[in-house]
Design a protein around this nucleic acid. Structure first.
Lengths: 220, 220
DNA sequence: TGATTTTCGTACCGTCTCGCATAATATAAA
DNA sequence: TTTATATTATGCGAGACGGTACGAAAATCA
């Protein structure tokens, strides 16, 4: 189902953080960088299809180091997810700070999402949370709870957008904020899935343009 | 990540189809039944996390029989997907035949989807197509094309619903059918993901109720 | 310099993976 | 009964899997 023949002989850069002089042999890797590389690999194939050998290769860490630094595969997966979440949270907060109207805000939101979803060295990767839910990893109660949390947070983010729009007088007070927010989340899910399925970004952007118009039209 | 210790000692029922007297030893399984069982297992864990041993157990077929009947794991996966598609197509066509208005039709559509998404011996399974896209299987060009096809077909189904509604005078001719259809597909994706993540069906049904109202309101 | 601490890197364990070779079994046809 | 056919059942094999034991290496500290 997936080729595993490459041997890139990657070597992670040594730690840059000038610190309080750690005692033993210095690490040959930067934990942050390694997590980022692991995340990229997990986003490609998901939990089950990603082997420790591959993770070892892309991070440049050998398996024992990987284990010592992050724990087992599951722990590394969760840490990767947390990194993913932190990364896009930064982008979302940026969009929240901007002084723009609801339509522009939603457009930027979806554009930022498409930036994330369409990255990938070979093909678009979609949303890590959606991938996780759609995998066997969802059988794990802790991971399952994490994912539900993620979706609620997303709904809340959209709710904030719509609420702010009402406050600013851009939308009437009669709008159904919870439903609109979940519909906005649904749109995000759809973008994630279709981008990963190979639908061209331009096509998805065109849809976003029209969908935002529909979501932001005043109710009759 | 997933337990694999059960040994149910399942035995598939022998072929019932009275036919033209096949020549050799009769099959101990019904291919249709076996595919259904394989589908159920694939829907649980996805492609990578589902082993041939497990498939062998749930179908009651030993691995060589499995291989002889359906080909390798990938072929069996594709056949399972086709079965999945046929199963829900039957339900969709039934909803299409009914003489009902757009809101009721969409509600039934989503209810039928939730029936599928929430089935599963231990937990809800979500949508098989979404699972496939979110897995490493999407790297396979044939499977990838199959999935895009699936999404277009879904959009078309919703388009038919909205077009019919306009014809029946339930919605104005000014509505944006393509966008509404994709938004309806997005809602379906969201239901798939959240059901698999463990969000209670009642909660999702409440959302459907309101979402249908929003999708079917006349544009201002 | 020598002791201590931390990490690296090789090599390995037991298990599971997919796929298949081979033989036994059960039916229909001759 | 014999032959041909089609399936079942056992089980092997080469490799990949997640995880770890152990000693070498590289730094600080005394």
């Amino acid at each position: 189902m997936v080729q595993k023949k490459n041997r890139p002989t990657v070597a992670a850069k040594p730690e840059v953080a000038a610190g309080p002089k750690r005692r033993g042999r210095p690490r040959a890797y930067a934990p942050d960088v390694a997590i980022g590389q692991a995340l990229a690999l997990f986003r490609k194939g998901g939990f089950a299809a990603t082997s420790l050998d591959e993770l070892s290769q892309v991070t440049g860490m050998n398996r024992p180091s990987l284990y010592g630094a992050f724990g087992d595969k599951r722990a590394l997966y969760i840490k990767s997810y947390q990194r993913y979440r932190e990364d896009y949270t930064v982008k979302v907060l940026e969009i929240f700070k901007a002084d723009i109207d609801i339509r522009e805000r939603l457009r930027r939101f979806y554009d930022a999402a498409l930036d994330i979803y369409t990255t990938g060295d070979t093909a678009p990767r979609g949303c890590f949370a959606v991938m996780t839910v759609a995998s066997d990893a969802i059988a794990d109660p802790e991971i399952s709870a994490l994912m539900r949390e993620n979706f609620v947070e997303l709904d809340d983010a959209f709710s904030w957008c719509f609420r702010t729009a009402v406050t600013r007088g851009e939308l009437p007070e009669t709008i159904d904020i919870p439903t609109l927010s979940q519909l906005a989340s649904a749109t995000l899910n759809m973008l994630s899935i279709r981008s990963r399925a190979g639908v061209p970004r331009a096509e998805l952007e065109a849809f976003v343009q029209k969908a935002v118009g529909l979501l932001c039209q005043s109710p009759a």
